[in-house]
């Protein structure tokens, strides 16, 4: 299998702060990669490299090369809006738009210039089905998304991201604000989406990392300490720092 994502010597600075130090990593297509590490270790910064959300932060500087499908996404010729269409993102706190369920999913298509109503309707249904939400909301698509429960809102946000047909899905602690049952649903969803998407997931939950991911990367103080198959990393870590973190001795 070819590499979907290649990161070569990535460095991120927030003003004087060196937030991500010399990280290199290859990620295969149709895999789930878990990013773990204590708060402030740079894992969210790393995740946000791929849809260039760091661009929105003032004083943020990125060095190094990040290739998706062999193309440098930080090339000045790259259109950021186009890039964000092919690399979807789900945030920590469910953040549906204060609009109807239907409009939430259709928004990504509309801002990308798609006007064909039938196409949009099909895509909304398909995305909601992919996000395992269709059966719960099919009779109330015109109702406000804010009336949904937290878990439903998060699956709506996943459906919203899927609607623009990305190939990579970035998830920033997608289940940390949810109850165990909703978390389970999200994890099942991640497993099912793997066949069509390359998924990166930031999590503070070790069990979640072992349950959902093929590979795990452990970050500490802005550095990538260890990156390996999830099973190997959790059963037989090479570094003591990884061992200490996954056994809960710190972090």
């Amino acid at each position: 299998m070819s590499q979907k994502i290649e990161v070569k010597n990535a460095n991120v600075y927030y003003g004087m702060e060196h937030a991500l130090i010399n990280v290199s990593m290859n990620i295969k297509a149709n895999t789930v990669t878990a990013l773990i590490g204590p708060s402030g270790c740079g894992k969210s910064t790393f995740l946000r490299l791929f849809n260039r959300m760091n661009d929105l932060i003032e004083n943020c500087r990125v060095e190094g090369q990040i290739l998706v499908d062999g193309q440098d996404i930080y090339n000045p010729k790259v259109n950021v809006n186009e890039l964000r269409k092919s690399i979807g993102m789900v945030f920590q706190k469910p953040n549906p738009f204060p609009k109807s369920i239907y409009e939430n999913v259709a928004y990504g298509l509309k801002v990308n210039g798609i006007k064909d109503k039938r196409l949009i309707e099909e895509k909304v249904e398909q995305s909601l089905k992919q996000a395992a939400l269709w059966d719960e909301v099919k009779d109330k698509l015109k109702k406000s998304a804010l009336a949904l429960s937290g878990g439903q809102q998060q699956r709506l946000c996943i459906a919203r991201a899927l609607a623009v047909s990305p190939s990579v899905l970035l998830m920033d602690e997608p289940a940390s604000a949810l109850d165990p049952i909703s978390t389970m649903k999200i994890e099942e969803l991640i497993f099912n989406l793997k066949s069509s998407y390359t998924i990166l997931i930031v999590t503070h939950n070790m069990q979640q990392a072992t349950r959902t991911s093929d590979k795990t990367a452990f970050f500490y103080m802005g550095e990538l300490v260890e990156y390996d198959d999830t099973r190997t990393l959790f059963t037989n870590p090479k570094f003591e720092r990884t061992q200490n973190y996954i056994t809960g001795r710190f972090g």
């Binding site: 269409k85 953040n95 738009f97 801002v111």
Partner: peptide
């Protein structure tokens, strides 16, 4: 809230689209 703008940008919306479709109505 900033999270609303973030959600819009993450879908590939431009700044003006985000303002017009999300920030102003909200």
């Amino acid at each position: 809230p900033y999270s609303l703008r973030e959600a819009s940008y993450a879908l590939g919306a431009s700044k003006w689209q985000t303002i017009w479709h999300q920030v102003l109505p909200a």
